[in-house]
Nucleic acid binder design. Structure first.
Length: 789
DNA sequence: AGCACGCCGACT
DNA sequence: GTCGGCGTGCTC
């Protein structure tokens, strides 16, 4: 019986295309196939197979099966889910999971090995005899290995191959990763609290459903950060204007749920099942979260399943890999954007075959074709680096929760400073929560003291307050390391001409240009626009009147160099001269203690540990509190908590000094009191009081039209008509700060929502009914539920 | 993603 | 007169 295959193509296409399956080829869902598309041939994945007695003869045939790991059922469902949630075309979502070997991989030379063929060489020589003596054991070696071992040159080996005494064989590539040993280190090194936490964590392995793959139908109900339903009783007022969702669309059930909040299909139903399977592992810096989740990884490996540890890319350091090796005997397989070519493909294959049992990777590792995934850990779950902002917009932490659900495996979200949404999910019982309250080894958290800048003013033209100077002086005099933290790159955030008052501004954005003295340039930190620092004022032509206003790390370094001329000072920021590799080296050097005073931006708050650090000085704790970003408070708290937590990880206790103008601000007060709990409660309450969801949901709708008036009319009509269903808020162009009109009248509306999925049907319906002014309005929908909050 | 088609400005 | 910019549509 002839087959027809629906093939999803990794392009911006939302529907699978149908192809005839040639006789002799039998396809299954998930198979990677080559198919003709227009004039070319490309790879796609079989999304469905139909048996057909007749018909299908008008379809173009599948060209062939590609040798690549097929996409498992859960992975295919993840692609579906991702596409629907982000409103991305399915094909684009597929592209994330289908990264086939690129050209460089194919052209890379295959490693050739040699072994003895048993035949004696036609022309024996001394060198040949030596080589053959080594090869006599019949073991396959690389050519260069054999040459080295025998102490002969490569040409001798080549000669023997030509001669027929050695035969060349394709070498089995070395494994991408050695198997980690879950019992390499006994659990005796764990503290009591850690051991208890590990035990609780490991209980999650047995709490799951018997078979995850029988649960297909429930997958729409997966609750992740941004999708979590609101509390009960929130507006259902606009149901009358709720458009009738197209019947073909699944969300009809959700959108038309008459029971109450249409957007909260599961509101009020605590989900004990989820709670035992997605777990927030919360512990202050230095409490040993990593060791705890390593135990879960060990347990997962013991059970013969695979574990995935997700990290923000910058946190994937040698330091971390060594910690892993100390626990498991070997370094883990790693996956990040820099892994390319053959290595990439072999890792994929190893993961698909189940040979690679642990992968540590950045967010894209989420789409690897695991054979039997048994655990996902999301380290530093609050990190905004988990947000993919280009192409398909997704949050890797949320997708990890989704994949965990689809694979039927536990998901651990680890953080010292969890995101608000994760805290809320834990609080509402949707996620489990394990807290490590203390630092490992009885070490104390650093004492944090405020320096009230209204009282303790720095000297004129200086930025370090006297108590800060004194503290740094004492620390370095005692041979300790100090960190001065200022989250501002460059020399000065604003430059003006003291003769005419001209302020240097970016020509693209409305931001001030930041002076970078080292680079002799004025730089826009928003768009990257750079210009040479002018000799004379561009406005009035006055010389020597350019005045830097305010501090950046470079300026602090200048001040520190004057105050502590004999100390080793280093500035660490993301624009470190010499690139990422140099920066990495410098971070290692600092960790090794080869520096007295570190001056750094937020870069130093993440990833690296500095064991010699005892003093952290925060130079402007108030930066970011007034940014207008709804997550400003949360972000600032997380950052300050992390950076102050860097102090005192070694034997000595640490302390932190915080320069601030608002010691009573809730964020600063919570930081000073060390009461994170209080911060979260206040922050969540505040959002609820303001009528905001406790965490972000926002969808952006882009309308582009050939004519500005058309777009504007459309947008205004939309904003007006949109008396939106519960949980959806449509912001008109005037209210939307991001409503940029760029290029040819591209027009952007923001639509705020609980559930991106519902927007799709809502908009389709609304636009379907609306008159099309000139028949020339195109609607593309682009949603990132989290990027704005 | 590629590739064709079609509409507008600026050249040998 | 065309060359070529990109905006738009199509690929089973």
């Amino acid at each position: 019986m002839p087959q027809t295959a629906d093939v999803l193509i990794p392009l911006a296409l939302d529907t699978a295309y149908s192809y005839a399956v040639p006789a002799g080829l039998v396809l299954a869902e998930g198979d990677v196939v080559q198919i003709p598309l227009g004039p070319r041939e490309i790879a796609g994945v079989v999304w469905g197979v139909e048996e057909r007695a007749s018909g299908g003869s008008n379809l173009r045939p599948v060209t062939g099966l590609i040798e690549a790991p097929p996409l498992s059922e859960p992975l295919r469902r993840l692609v579906d889910w991702l596409a629907r949630y982000t409103l991305a075309p399915k094909g684009s979502a597929l592209a994330m999971a289908l990264r086939l070997p690129d050209e460089s991989a194919r052209t890379e030379t295959m490693r050739v090995g040699v072994r003895s063929s048993g035949k004696p060489p036609a022309r024996p020589t001394a060198a040949r005899a030596k080589a053959l003596a080594v090869a006599a054991d019949g073991v396959v070696r690389g050519k260069s290995t054999l040459a080295k071992e025998a102490g002969v040159s490569l040409s001798v080996v080549d000669g023997l191959i030509d001669d027929g005494a050695l035969e060349a064989v394709a070498l089995v590539p070395e494994p991408v990763a050695l198997p980690p040993d879950p019992d390499f280190l006994s659990t005796a090194h764990l503290s009591e609290a850690q051991a208890e936490a590990a035990k609780q964590l490991n209980a999650a392995f047995d709490a799951g459903p018997p078979s995850p793959r029988t649960q297909g139908e429930s997958r729409d109900d997966i609750v992740v950060g941004a999708l979590s339903p609101k509390g009960e009783g929130e507006g259902s007022s606009s149901e009358k204007t709720l458009p009738v969702a197209p019947p073909h669309h699944r969300s009809a059930r959700l959108a038309l749920d008459k029971e109450g909040s249409a957007l909260s299909p599961r509101a009020g139903r605590g989900d004990a099942h989820d709670a035992s399977r997605t777990i927030l592992l919360e512990g202050v810096t230095g409490s040993g979260k990593t060791e705890v989740y390593f135990e879960a990884v060990a347990e997962c490996v013991r059970r013969g399943r695979q574990a995935l540890v997700l990290m923000p890319e910058i946190a994937l350091t040698a330091q971390f890999l060594d910690r892993f090796a100390a626990r498991f005997g070997v370094r883990p397989a790693t996956w990040h954007s820099g892994i390319g070519g053959r290595r990439r493909e072999r890792l994929r294959a190893g993961v698909a075959a189940g040979d690679v049992s642990v992968v540590v990777g950045a967010r894209s590792a989420l789409f690897l074709p695991f054979r039997q995934l048994g655990l996902i850990v999301v380290d530093e779950e609050h990190e905004s680096a988990y947000k993919q902002e280009d192409g398909v917009h997704y949050h890797a932490r949320d997708m990890a929760v989704v994949r965990g659900k689809l694979e039927g495996c536990p998901v651990v979200l680890a953080s010292a400073t969890p995101s608000i949404e994760t805290r809320v999910n834990a609080q509402r019982g949707r996620y489990g929560r394990i807290v490590l309250p203390e630092r490992f080894g009885g070490r104390r958290l650093p004492d944090i003291t405020a320096i009230d800048m209204r009282l303790d003013k720095p000297e004129r033209g200086r930025f370090l307050a006297p108590p800060m100077v004194a503290a740094v002086k004492k620390a370095v005099a005692d041979g300790e390391q100090a960190l001065l933290f200022l989250n501002r790159r460059g020399y000065a955030p604003l430059t003006l001409c003291s003769a005419c008052g001209h302020r240097y501004q970016c020509r693209n954005c409305s931001t001030w240009l930041v002076e970078h003295r080292f680079r002799k340039a004025l730089v826009c930190h928003h768009c990257g626009y750079t210009e040479r620092k002018p000799e004379a004022c561009v406005e009035c032509g006055a010389f020597d009147h350019l005045t830097p206003c305010g501090p950046g790390v470079e300026r602090i370094a200048e001040e520190a160099a004057e105050l502590f001329p004999d100390k080793r000072i280093i500035v660490l920021s993301s624009d470190f001269p010499g690139g990422t590799e140099r920066l990495r080296q410098e971070l290692e050097a600092v960790a090794a203690g080869e520096c007295d005073i570190v001056i750094g931006t937020q870069l130093v708050a993440k990833g690296h540990n500095f064991p010699h650090l005892t003093l952290v000085g925060v130079l402007d704790a108030d930066i970011g509190l007034t940014s207008g970003d709804p997550r400003a408070a949360e972000r600032t708290f997380q950052l300050l908590q992390q950076v102050t937590g860097r102090a005192g990880r070694g034997e000595r206790p640490g302390r932190a000094l915080v320069q601030t103008f608002q010691p009573d601000h809730p964020v600063i007060a919570a930081l000073l009191s060390g009461d994170a709990e209080r911060f979260y409660e206040e922050e969540i309450a505040q959002r609820e009081n303001a009528g905001l969801p406790p965490f972000g949901r926002l969808a952006a709708l882009i309308v582009s039209a050939a004519e500005r008036e058309v777009a504007e009319a459309h947008g205004q009509a939309m904003a007006r008509v949109a008396d939106p269903p519960a949980g959806i808020m449509v912001l008109g162009p005037a209210e939307a700060p991001l409503a940029l009109i760029r290029g040819r009248y591209r027009f952007r509306l923001l639509v705020k929502t609980d559930r991106a999925i519902d927007i799709q049907s809502y908009l389709r319906d609304w636009l379907g009914r609306s008159p099309k002014p000139r028949g020339n309005v195109k609607v593309a929908i682009d949603v990132d539920p989290q990027s704005f909050l």
